[in-house]
Structures are given as structure tokens and as C-alpha cells.
Write a protein that binds this DNA or RNA. Sequence first.
DNA 1: GCAAATATAATAGCATTACTATCATATATG
DNA 2: CATATATGATAGTAATGCTATTATATTTGC
Lengths: 209, 209
Amino acid sequence: MYLKNPDTSELGNSIISNSIELIDELGFEKFTFKKLSIKINSPESSIYRYFKSKHTLLIYLTSWYWSWTDYRLVLTTININSPKEKLKRSLNILTEPVLEDKLVSYVNEVLLHKIISTESVKAYQTKDVDEENKNGCFTTYKNVVNQIANLILEINPTFKFPHMLISTVVEGSHRQRYYSAHIPSLTDTKSNEDVISKFYSELVFKMIK
Amino acid sequence: MYLKNPDTSELGNSIISNSIELIDELGFEKFTFKKLSIKINSPESSIYRYFKSKHTLLIYLTSWYWSWTDYRLVLTTININSPKEKLKRSLNILTEPVLEDKLVSYVNEVLLHKIISTESVKAYQTKDVDEENKNGCFTTYKNVVNQIANLILEINPTFKFPHMLISTVVEGSHRQRYYSAHIPSLTDTKSNEDVISKFYSELVFKMIK
DNA sequence: GCAAATATAATAGCATTACTATCATATATG
DNA sequence: CATATATGATAGTAATGCTATTATATTTGC
């Protein structure tokens, strides 16, 4: 996923934090290593020592996001016994926007979440998926989905499509948030209300009943 | 959406039919007008007379797909009175893969559907959405969603999120088909079974009940 | 049937993108 | 203090995403 681990050096940290800001600002297609190199005041070639392309950088960011989400899922479900309550809390983590930026100094988690919800499709939806999947590029996301799928099976062991349900909910909620801001006729909510999270929670509980 | 209407000339037709094949073959990011120009044996500059970029070509194809889908929706629901039956049939059109290629000589609808389901996200998920949306680039898709949303309201006039539900179903089913072929841990089906369509129909009917 | 309009071909060019390579210098480590 | 490692500075290259120009076909309107 990376050529050199970006959290082992200052330059690496700077690449991560500034790429998050720049991708958020420009969008993934207009984001380039050249522009990033100007922003971080280092030669382009130094960035290439960490990541072999902007595509693998996006995969790295996506993967980072999902391990971080996994960690947050553990935190909100710890010491809670009821599987239903666990699921409810987990779904909130998955479908609500991230509002605070605290954990890791060089990562703005609020912006990272924004990027993931709008740009991460572009990380999997390419002709290289199969190979990248083989190399474990998507394991952190798959783990999260799988974990919640197991929670669902605790509640209803006969439910046949827990993975399908969860990935639908995760990506659906990202998409709906985007639509409410940009293509409102594809949704039923203005960007200020918070209806999306409730909609998807309801969807899950109705489906597994 | 286009600079010159591609269905008014042979070259235009050739651009459309060959771009569908080439995007399917290479994926959208590796597809270029240069490669297309070699395939159709015409200079690159001629393609630029029809479309100002590969991005607007993708928008054109997406838009074409949704008007065609609209037409198919009319066909399958005509003369049917029960709104529930109408909805059921419409959902099949929206969630099942396209298997036959008949309507328009220069468009391979089977391949077009494949492209739409894997690549069309890249048509809306960019920094230019707002302007493109203003210019009506997404109206054909919005029309389809809106039409089915109205059907839902016929069945349950108090349901609050028909657009959200339908866009979730449409895009979810595309996504799940992709996952079953490429990232199976994110779904619960092998690419040969047909479980996806049923899952999303059930989802709709459970939600609007 | 001819002039004018329109469409396409042929060719060139240019800034940007996505890299790779090389060599020098700074910094860390053993 | 030597050596390894990380970064900087600079150059270069093929491909991408266009725009421009001129020439040659083809269609159309009178």
C-alpha cells in the first residue's frame, strides 16, 4: 500500500495531512502529487518515495479511515451487552458524519471522513480491483462490514444478507449526504437536517426483523 | 452535454458504439480519446467536435441510459393497474442486469448497463456536480427516480423518503453486483445466483409498509 | 450543376500529468 | 566517525488532454 510508512517520519506525516486537505479542496481528479509537493514544499520525487501513485495514496487513506472506524466501533460498543443496542450505536458511527478531530495529530478526521464518503468509490471501482483486493488493500473495510454482519447474526441468526445490508447502508448514507448537498432530487432531505442516519437504522432493523 | 449531436452522423454513432466498448474494456480512467480515435480510425480532433471531454461523454452515456430505462419502465408498467405490481416490475428493471441488446443499432445496451453500474458514479462524484446539475446533466436519472418515488407514494402516501429509498436501491444493486464479482466479502452472493434483485425488492416493500 | 456551407481528415503543437533517474546533501544510528 | 538512510535539487520522458490550422471531402440549397 505504501513504499515507505508515512507515519514514521515528519515528511510522511506532512504528506498525509496535506493530501487530506488538498483532496478535500480539489477533489481527487484534480489532485496531483505536483500540487501536493508545492503545498508541502518538498520535491515531487520525495512523495513518490512514500506512495507509488495518487491512487495508492487514496487506498491508504481509505484503509486508515476504516481502521480508525473499527477502533471507534470498539469504543462505543464496549461494556454494552444488548446486541441490539450495540448495533444501534454501531450504525450511528457508520452513518453519521464525523464532527471531531482528535485522535491522531496529523490526520484531520473530519475532512478524512468527507473524502472517504465522496472519493473512496474511486479507490475500488477500477480495473485493478482484483489484484488490489488480493493484496489486502480493502481488508480494513471488509473487517468493519464483517464485524457488524456478525452482530446482525447475533440478533437474527437466520438472516441471509448481513454483508449486503451493511455495505448498502454505509455507502448509501455517504451517497445520500452527498446528494442532499449537490443533487437534492435524488434524496428527501436538506443538508441541515439529520434524517439520513435514522432512515438507515430503520432500514436495518426492518430488514433483520 | 454534447457539442454536436452524435446520433445525427455516422461518425457520431461510431464514437458512441466504440466508446461503450472501449470504456467497458479499459475502464473509465484508462479510456482516452486518443485510444478511441485509433479504434474508430478517425483523428482525435474529430471526437472533440462531438464531446469536449471524456467526462462529458460519460455524462452523455449515463443520460442516454436513463432515458432508455425510462422507456423500458413505461413498457413494463403499461396496462397494469395495481401500483404494487407496477412497482414490483419497475424494481426488476432497475436492479436486474440488462441481457438483451436490441433497441438502437449503434448502442450495445448490455455493455452500456455494465458501464453505468460501474463507472457512472464518476460522472456525478466530481467537483463540477453543481454546475452540471444546473445544466440538466442528471435530469434523466432524476426523472426515473422521481417517477418510481411517485409510484411509492401511490402505495403509501405517508412515506417520507421515496427518493432516498429508490436511489439507495438503484445504486446499491449496482454496487452489490460489482462486489459479488470483485470483492465478495462485502456481499453475500456469488455472481451466478440472482439474489440481489430480490433483496432490494424486499427492502423496498418492507420499508414502505 | 454549381456555390456555399458543413463535416471530416491530417497534422502540429502545447501545457500538464504521472512518473523515473541521478546526484548531492543532510540527518540519524551503531 | 563511518555508514546507512532520508531528503532535496534538478532533469527528463512518454502519455494525456486538449486547441489550432489547413486541406479535402460531402451535403445542401438555389
